[in-house]
Nucleic acid binder design. Structure first.
Lengths: 349, 349
DNA sequence: AATTAGCACTCGCCAGGAGAGAGTGCTAAC
DNA sequence: GTTAGCACTCTCTCCTGGCGAGTGCTAATT
């Protein structure tokens, strides 16, 4: 395939390009201590590499730049990752562990991922509608107002307020509470709604007006979340402004438009769901309408041993892969461990 | 001060500028049907207006552009607002009414404000630490896991999970529940924590180990929110990319940096807290490190008759004030009405 | 046969200059 | 007080001619 020397040259070229961000010329390369051939020879090699589609020249007299394919090759063959600094690992673990709920943990993860990478982070959120209700609590607030607390997997809770047309007695509430817990436990929100509707019809005669109304209202409240349907969180868009290679308003606008779209992004993330470990998508190969000099580093994450989503960062194709890859990996790992089942850690000894 | 004709000219000049975004020349103005004097006369008037600091010319041969002061004058004296389209009002009301909790309503408000204005929206969030606990509910999830639900003002609820070192009996939980409700009702989170600490010491002897631990854990859980301290929500930053007058990466970067800072922004918003109705800050007059061709339209909003925050939009100084002002106003109004006390609307009929 | 030095060539970038277009300020006439 | 006229200024665009960087090819070298 590719000779030893050719590989070395490609490698050095890419490393230089990643560092400096400018096209690399044959003379520059020839001056490197690792390289003992002359500029002319390098030019010949470069011509070959260009033919293979690994590098390209922006114009006749501008040195060479790695193509998406070249970078891909580099990442697959040459890259050695730099282990994450202990300090960063520390920071991630603490921040995510502190967050009480899964939502909060995911939120922090995306923020930190963006901050530590200096790029945009994307996280595919688990679909709440798919999670299973483990407990329902009714908290009377006033004569006509009741708080419904939905607990999912014993890990997360959501609140819904219900306004009553007429007051309910404590016993009635008690009865309703038992009813909800018996009926809804283990169901997803979607199923729960359906169940309520069907039970209402069955039990119609046994229920009094007030309780029926309450169940109706509860059924409406369950629907609340379904619409929101935010399945992708994109954090830190504005960080992209700092990269010179993207410093062009028209291009940025396009990029941001892609983020809004979400569909494409989700699609790529889904592809990384199947694979193990960290995936790197460079340029258009991702299938996204991403600029050719953008890249996506992603990793899937699971909750309770089922895949639920993926997370990653998007930035310029010219990014420090050796640092970004372990960062994404570690964030995924930590997030997983935090979300694993009700935290088994006892609070005080 | 300013003659009738001079005012008309200033006004027309600004309207044209707002519409076209380019410097306005004397010839262009003279062609307007409302204006019957010649270009030469207009030039004389313009010289006066320039002397007063109301307009300026970017360079010798480029027509005039209103200064921040000129715009200010325009907004104060000439502006007639266009009432909001019924459809938009509808959309706002519905979206905000649907959101169950205050948090969600505020979230939607900021999103809509940004979307409908096409600019950045900023909302100063009420400080959760200042809100008063109206109810505490303990929901046992498993032997060693309890969900604590904190209800504020009967309108919002937050959840905290607590891990127990050893199981508590149902009676103990019942007792704790009563204890929390009696002790904490009407207190802010900060006060609640303090109270828990002091009561712990007083009652030390009367409590058994498990309950003491639980109270300790609860006290820790209360602290969770205090750190987050996000007091300002900025939504839709990337919309600014579409404005030509800001289409410059360096400038955008600065702007975004200002948004991150928050301190300055909060300061300006606070100024609008004191005033009634919608406030307009143009350019640097806001005191923010805002570009001179940015403006802020803001309005304070209250909850239960106490001022809690402000909301508004930031965009190019050349914005359609006649539409933006009523939009900000209406959003504030609707948000207020939605957050007013537990919604009195009965659910069915 | 592989490597290298040499050299003509190409292209982007920048400075300088010319011409067009827009708008002004001033002056003199109305 | 208003207006027409005109010289002037300034930006913008297009063109031009170096310059520097880097290439591809060829012929000489090892």
């Amino acid at each position: 395939m590719l000779g030893e020397r050719d590989q070395l040259l490609l490698r050095k070229l890419i490393e230089l390009y990643l560092k400096e961000g400018r096209p690399v010329g044959s003379r520059t390369l020839s001056k490197l201590p690792e390289i003992s051939v002359s500029a002319a020879t390098i030019r010949n090699v470069m011509a070959d590499l260009e033919e293979r589609g690994l590098i390209a020249s922006p114009h006749t007299s501008a040195g060479r730049v790695p193509t998406a394919r070249g970078l891909r090759f580099y990442v697959d063959r040459f890259l050695t990752v730099t282990p994450l600094e202990q300090e960063q690992v520390q920071r991630l673990s603490e921040a995510l562990a502190e967050a009480g709920e899964a939502d909060a943990a995911i939120d922090r993860a995306s923020r930190l991922l963006s901050e530590l990478s200096g790029m945009v982070s994307i996280v595919r959120l688990p679909d709440r509608a798919e999670e299973r209700v483990s407990r329902v609590a009714l908290v009377p607030l006033s004569e006509r107002r009741v708080l419904v607390v939905l607990v999912f997997n014993n890990q997360e809770a959501e609140n819904r307020f219900i306004e009553l047309a007429r007051p309910l007695s404590a016993e009635q509430l008690e009865k309703l509470s038992r009813f909800f817990n018996e009926e809804l436990e283990g169901l997803t929100l979607r199923e729960a709604r359906a169940r309520l509707v069907s039970r209402m019809q069955q039990l119609h005669a046994d229920l009094n007006e007030g309780m029926r109304r309450f169940i109706e209202a509860a059924e409406g409240a369950l629907a609340q979340h379904e619409q929101e349907g935010e399945t992708l969180r994109v954090t830190g868009k504005t960080r992209l402004l700092q990269y010179e290679e993207l410093a062009d308003v028209a291009r940025l606008r396009e990029l941001f438009a892609t983020f809004e779209q979400q569909r494409d992004l989700l699609h790529v993330l889904d592809r990384s769901l199947e694979a193990d470990g960290v995936q790197v998508f460079i340029g258009r190969e991702s299938g996204v309408e991403l600029d050719d000099d953008c890249a996506l580093v992603a990793r899937s994450w699971s909750m309770d041993d089922t895949l639920v989503g993926a997370l990653g960062v998007i930035g310029p194709a010219r990014m420090p892969y050796d640092r970004v890859i372990p960062l994404v990996d570690m964030t995924g790992r930590i997030l997983e461990s935090v979300l694993k089942k009700p935290a088994p850690a006892p609070l005080n000894e």
